[in-house]
Structure formats: structure tokens, C-alpha cells
Computed example of a mutant assay.
Amino acid sequence: MHAMPAVHLEPLPYEPLLPLREPEAIDLVVIHCTELPDLAMAREYGERVLYDSGTGNSGHYYIDRDGSIHQYVAPERSAHHVRGINPRALGIELINTGRYPHWLDSRHQAMDELYAQAQIQALVALLRWLPQRLPALRWIAGHEDLDTEQVPASDDPALKVPRKRDPGPRFPWDEVLAAIPLQRLSE
């Protein structure tokens, strides 16, 4: 048994509007990076209402560079974090600049920021504990594994760039997978 890590409960204003689901329906964790400079901006983006339902895009958990874990959406609610997968998935967002602010510019596709060790340690602690709360949890994937769409580059529409690249090439998959009970979802 693994102890629950310290989690700051900070529900988004629209959390009650997100669909409820049974814990047995959740078998996948999707790792994201925010592609934003800090937790405050990630919160601001998460609070934006984008859908007729009165909800927006967000993950369930956000892990800051200092290792602090923030829960914006309860796991029993389906959040909007990856197209076509949300009902079965839990989204974990790592604060990381990624391609910010030129997400789709073909000249800015490198994702150079390293993930902080405190952030990865907090992620591992969360991923060790979550299967105790969600017994069907078996799989883990990166957002880039599930959303492989290529879109026109913002600087040159004749070029195509990945719509999503997170968590990106700097995410330490080997280290994380060696420390958790989940298996990487194969495409």
C-alpha cells in the first residue's frame, strides 16, 4: 500500500458540470505537459469555458515544478483533456513550457525544458497511489501517443506539425515506468 501524496484540492468552477463516471471505467492515465509558463496560467486556461455544457479543457491533476500536486477535477468526473479518450482516462498535467507560446510554428517545435526531479517524484508518488483508489487503472500513455494529428503550421500552412507533442522528448519514460505499476499503452 502506498500513502496518498499531499494533494491540494482546487476544483475548477465548472467541475460539478462535468459528467460523473464509475471508478471502474477509468483504466488509463494520460500524461500531458501544459505548454504554458506556470501553474497560474494553467489554472487560467483551465477555467476558460469553451463548450455549451459550461465546461472547458483541463486535466484532473496538475504537478508544478516544485512537486506540489493540485487537483482541479475529481477523478470520478470526466474532464476534457484528450479527444475521444476522456470517459476512460485520467489526465495529469505537468507544468512545462513545451512549445509556448508558438505551439504550431514549424520553427519552434523543440521542447527543451527538462522536467524537475521534484515534479517527477511527485508524479511517481501519485501514480503509485492512484491504482488503490481506481482499481481498473492499468495503462499509461502520453498525449502525443493518443492524438497524432498533423495540422498546418502557423508560420507556413504548407508545412504540417504535430497538434500535440506532450509530454514530449524530455519526459523520462524509462524512469517513470520502472517505478510504477502501470504499463505503457501500445498504439
Rank of each mutant, 00 (worst) to 15 (best):
Y115S: 04
Q119T: 11
L127R: 05
M111A: 05
L123D: 01
D105A: 12
A89C: 12
W103S: 01
Y72D: 04
Q109P: 05
P87H: 04
R88T: 06
A141S: 13
E149T: 08
R133E: 10
W103H: 07
P135Y: 06
G142Q: 03
E113R: 14
T148H: 12
R88F: 02
V82H: 03
E113Q: 12
R88A: 05
Y72K: 02
D112H: 13
K160M: 13
P157F: 06
L104Y: 15
G142P: 02
L159H: 06
A116Y: 01
V82C: 10
H81G: 06
G91C: 05
S106M: 07
R138V: 03
P152S: 10
L134D: 07
A110Q: 07
A74Q: 09
S106I: 08
E149M: 14
D145G: 03
G91S: 08
N86Q: 15
L134A: 05
H143C: 15
A141P: 04
L146T: 10
Q150M: 15
A122D: 02
Y100A: 00
N86G: 10
E93A: 14
W139V: 02
H108M: 12
D145C: 05
N96E: 07
D112M: 13
R138S: 11
D145T: 03
M111V: 03
G142D: 10
Y100R: 02
